[in-house]
Structure formats: structure tokens, C-alpha cells
Nucleic acid binder design. Structure first.
Lengths: 331, 331
DNA sequence: GGTGAGTCTGCAATCGGTTGCAGTCTGTGT
DNA sequence: ACACAGACTGCAACCGATTGCAGACTCACC
């Protein structure tokens, strides 16, 4: 059906080996031969069979991506970034969605690992030990978190929280509530930590209201507790939670930002469309995917990991001020 | 590194052929031998190398999915459905995002087609001819549209529009505006058609305001024209457009649903969170992905297409009434 | 006991490439 | 004229599976 390397060889009047070399090690073959091969390749529209190549080289030209939930715009953007960068390197991407089920992750990665050269893993909930076990048999790059000994790309959450708090304090807020995401989530821990530091440095006060699902519903559920803290501003785990807060606050007749300022994290598309438009810490999502791919491919090209230094990527957020934050209300 | 079929054979004291058969054609091998093989497989954690198998069978156990934009929640849901169903069949999915560039599609599908058994293609803009050309060399299932001669799964847009119009007419609306998406989009054409029919059947009046980008910005841009038509209700191409409308109407001080009722299509997550919560025609998105996969796999198993009858899937939308529609204002 | 059918199992070819090794050819230095 | 290095190229083995074909063995039946 489709042309094989033998067809090309016949047409060019050379052996298959020469064709193979002309394609992968061009400097090893005579320029005129190379031209004949190129012509034959062109004429037949030949493209090497990846399965056959992979069989002998041990590389598949494919990477895997595991995310908790594709329908979450944060992960969708991440996937876009991974995908675009991989295509740029002529690498295909298997996407697997765990449906927010951390237990399924290990199995998925194991199944994937047989078919790919490496995996970009987005696993906010798994423990460091679980991750280490997974990385035992597969080349893995973490994304959106770190774990000792494993390469990864993550956000500088502390810096992001510092920006948010500085903004709020400048607006006169002194007591700031914090709606955390799942307690086991890496981001929850780091954002909480960053927040505590920032608040302390600026002589304000933090009022954590506990852990909630990282969803719109989570935000709705948290809203009343936020109000009860008496805080004049709130930082939410992410934008979905912040938008949930907005909804519940609105229905209780609490004005944003008049009575309460709200800050999210992520800057998903929806945040711009919320009412009031959400002030948030924008995280470069596609960028994270891109860097993760680069990291992974670099590791695959250099399995000994000589380039230890570059095994971590760190990305910075940027505060986007919109309409959900304003001056603290006068007592 | 990992166990091969030879290792298993040696451990079980049989030939590789027998191992292969024990796994793929169990009834061909003696029960006791089969048990020995099974034990060896278990002990070694053997799993057949897909590349090697694909080389000889010509099947890769992989399908491709091409979508315009993963960041669009509609396509993200679709992808989830495809992905879940494929995993259920132990088939991996390559995801490719064309970045809303119809020109890139053909190339992408061609590149993909070398590596997969078939492709689920979501291409709202391409012409029937372009699709036919693509399907020449690859097994393709269309999704979210139809084209003559090609298998696919699509929504019954006319039925959905009928539901929307019936709802609006029941609320007393007589003049209904229609904000179309891209003119070349299959869905725009079919929704427009369905709308005209429904409006005519119910003795109402349709006021089309032209074609806009299928985005929030598109909706913002369309809003003033909608108002200018004097309609008391508007059906938007999709939810993103509807939410854009909501935003612009709000900033102009036009009350929804007091002055104008708004209906979207899709029911993306964001619609529930809009203010007012959006009335919309819910399209079963994951279901579409699932059915497309089933269709594709069936075609692959039966290349002659004996099962002509089942080559099309049709899905129905369901009107979800929320707060953006209400009684028509009294003149 | 011999024959034939039937059931398993193994041999070896094959899929489409890649690569170590050896051979050919050309050109240069002496 | 000869030896030798260097540049290409081809042969053949190999990656890890699947599968047509044939051999081995069992069993029943005549």
C-alpha cells in the first residue's frame, strides 16, 4: 500500500541501508546519491514507518500526558501547550484523563509507559512516594508541582501570593481570608505557605477557612464561611472557586468589591467573563506544557542526565487586576 | 529490559509461537499449556510490544483525534468522551489541536494517519470536498457535522432549535434574533435552517443579525445589532457567544431576561455560572465522542463496511431552562 | 496393528526499518 | 607501480512480535 524503504531503494538504485542513512545520517552518504534518494523519496511520498523504526531504536517518537481532568480549562490549556511543543519536535502525544481519580494514575502511567518514550505527569494529589514509584520505570516530568529527585516544572506560588497580598494591602485590606483547595494538593500547600509569609511580611492578618473542592461548587460552599471571618478580602485557591464565591456572595447581596474583594489564581478564560471580572494571578499555562516537553525530550536525548541543572523549570505568575478587587470598606 | 515473548516462552518451556497463540487465540492451545504460559506471563509482567505487533498486523491500536481548539470547553468535553471510550477498548488516542486553522487540518490528518488506525475528525469549517480528499487515505469518522458519503455523528440541530423557539414563543416572544457563527460552519448553517423552520411553524418572526466569531468577543460584538432588531429574544450560535451577549447587554443596562431573553447552545460548564444563568440547548458532548469512537472501531473491524446502516450517529439536544429567558416584555 | 482424523505445537518467514562490519573504489604519497 | 588511508555502499543480522505450514502425537476405529 504505502511505500517502504525497499521501494525507495529500488527506485534510487541503491540498497535500503543507504536510503536509511541518507535520511538519518546525511553526511555519511555521497551528495549525488543522497540527491537520488531524496528524489525517490519525494516521488513515492515515502515516510518511514514509525513502528518499524521504534522496534530497533527503542524510541517511539511519542510521549504521554496525564492530567486529572481535560474539562478543567487549566488542564486544557496545559494540554494545548504540550501538544503544540511536541508537534514542533515531530513527537506525538497520547493524552490520558484520570477523571480526578488519583488511584487510576499509577495504572495509567504504567500502561502508557509501554508505548511512549516518556510521560508528562500532572498529578497534584499523589504523594512523593507514589510519584517516585511511578518514575522508577519511566522517564517522567512533573508539571504544576515538584517532588524531591524528580524533574518538573512548577509555578512560584509564593511569589504569586505575594503579588496578590501586596495588591490587597495597598487597597487597605488588613484581614484576608484564604479558601484552600484539596488539603493534599501540592498547590494548596504552597499557596497557603506563600500567603502566610506575605501577610506576615506586610503586617496583615490571614484567616484560612479550610479546604474545599477546587470547583465552582467549592467556592459556593466556602462563601458563607469567608463572610463569617469578617475579612474584607479573600484569596481563592483558583478561579473556579473564586467564581463560585462571586455567585454566592451576589445571591446574599454582598457587594464585590464594595464589601469584599476577591482574588483568584490561574486566569482561565472564564475569569474575564465573570461579573465582576475577576482579579487573578495569571499562570502561564501553555508555557508550562511547553517547558515540560522540552525538559522531557532533553532527558530522553541525554539519559545520563548530565544536564542536571536544567531539570527544573520555574514559572512566574502575574497579577491581573480587574473589577473584583477595590479599596477596603471603611469600618 | 522488559520481558519479550521469548523470555516468556523459555520460562514456560514452549515456543514463542505458542505464547503468542495462548494470548490471542486461547482456544487453539491446550489448557495446561495455556496455564503454564499464563503463569510465566504473570511472573514476568510480560506485555506484548505494540510496535512489533503493529508491524505485522498493520494495526497500531491507536486512533487520532483532531479538534479545532482544546481550550474551547466544547471540544475539551468531546475529547474526554473520545478518550474514555478509547481507553475502554484499550486503544490509545493521539490528540491534535489545529488552533482553529482549517488549512492545517489536512496536513495534520495526513501526518497522523501514518501512525494510527483511524481518525476522529472534528472539522466544522472544511468543505465536503476537502473532507472527501482526507478520507481517501484514512479511515475517518466525522463528529459534530455530516458530509455525504462519510460516516459521522452529529446533533439534530433542527430539533434543538425547535425546542428553543417553542420555549420562547410560549413565553410570548414573537420576534427572535439569531446570532450565527462562522458562515462556513456546518452548525451555523443547520441551526439557522432549523430556526427558520421552527419560527415559521410557530408563526413568529426571525431576525438574523449575521455571522460572528464563535467566542465571547463575537457575542459582545453582536449585542448591539441584536438590540437594534427590536427582537425580544435572541438565540446565539453557542454559549460563549451568548455569554458575550450577556456581558454587553449588562453594560448597556439592558435587563436579561426583563428586556431581552437569551438562549445559547452547548451547555458548557460556564453557562451555569453566568449571570443570569444561561438557558441553553444542552448537547451531549462526551456522548458524541464516545459514539464516534465506537463507529470508528466498528469500521476498522469490518473494513468492507457491511454495517452500512450504523455509519451515522445522531444525537439530540435538550433545552435547559435557567434564568436568562423570561416572559416577553409588554409593549 | 495400521490407518486416518484431529489436536497441539514448533519452525521459519515476515513486517519495515537500523546498524556493525566488511568490501569496493578512488585518490594520494612514495 | 604499490601500499594505504579514507569515503561510500552493501550484506546480513536484528528488533519483537504473528502466522502459514508441516510435523508430532493421541486416539478411535476397522
Amino acid at each position: 500500500m504505502t511505500a517502504t524503504i525497499r521501494d525507495v531503494a529500488r527506485l534510487a538504485g541503491v540498497s535500503p541501508s543507504t536510503v536509511s542513512r541518507a535520511l538519518s545520517l546525511p553526511e555519511m552518504v555521497n551528495a549525488t546519491t543522497r540527491a537520488r534518494v531524496a528524489a525517490a523519496v519525494e516521488q513515492l511520498g515515502y515516510e518511514p514507518n514509525r513502528a518499524a523504526r521504534g522496534l530497533i531504536t527503542g524510541r517511539t517518537g511519542t510521549i504521554g500526558l496525564v492530567v486529572p481532568d481535560l474539562a478543567n480549562p487549566f488542564f486544557a490549556s496545559l494540554t494545548k501547550g504540550v501538544q503544540a511543543r511536541a508537534r514542533h519536535h515531530d513527537v506525538a502525544v497520547f493524552v490520558a484523563d484520570t477523571d480526578e481519580d488519583p488511584a487510576a494514575e499509577a495504572g495509567l502511567v504504567r500502561a502508557l509507559s509501554k508505548q511512549v518514550d516518556g510521560v508528562v505527569l500532572c498529578s497534584p494529589r499523589a504523594s512523593d512516594e507514589e510519584l517516585a514509584a511511578i518514575a522508577q520505570n519511566t522517564t517522567v516530568v512533573l508539571v504544576n508541582r515538584t517532588a524531591v529527585g524528580l524533574p518538573g516544572v512548577a509555578y512560584d506560588n509564593e511569589d504569586g501570593m505575594r503579588q496578590a497580598v501586596a495588591h490587597l494591602v495597598a487597597l487597605g485590606h488588613r484581614r484576608i481570608a484564604w479558601v484552600g483547595g484539596p488539603a493534599t494538593s501540592w498547590s494548596t500547600q504552597h499557596r497557603g505557605f506563600g500567603l502566610r509569609n506575605a501577610v506576615e511580611a506586610l503586617r496583615a492578618e490571614l484567616a484560612p477557612v479550610g479546604n474545599f473542592a477546587p470547583t465552582y461548587e467549592g467556592g459556593m460552599a466556602a462563601a458563607d464561611q469567608v463572610v463569617a471571618t469578617g475579612a474584607t478580602a479573600v484569596v481563592a485557591y483558583n478561579d473556579l472557586v473564586a467564581i463560585g464565591l462571586l455567585a454566592r456572595l451576589h445571591s446574599r447581596g454582598i457587594s464585590v468589591p464594595g464589601d469584599l474583594s476577591v482574588v483568584g489564581v490561574d486566569d482561565i478564560a472564564m475569569s474575564r467573563m465573570a461579573r465582576p471580572a475577576l482579579t487573578t494571578v495569571r499562570l502561564p499555562k501553555q508555557e508550562a506544557g511547553r517547558i515540560a516537553v522540552e525538559l522531557l525530550l532533553a532527558m530522553l536525548d541525554d539519559p545520563d542526565g548530565a544536564a542536571e541543572g536544567s531539570k527544573h523549570g520555574e514559572l512566574h505568575g502575574e497579577l491581573i487586576v480587574r473589577d473584583s478587587t477595590g479599596p477596603a470598606p471603611q469600618k
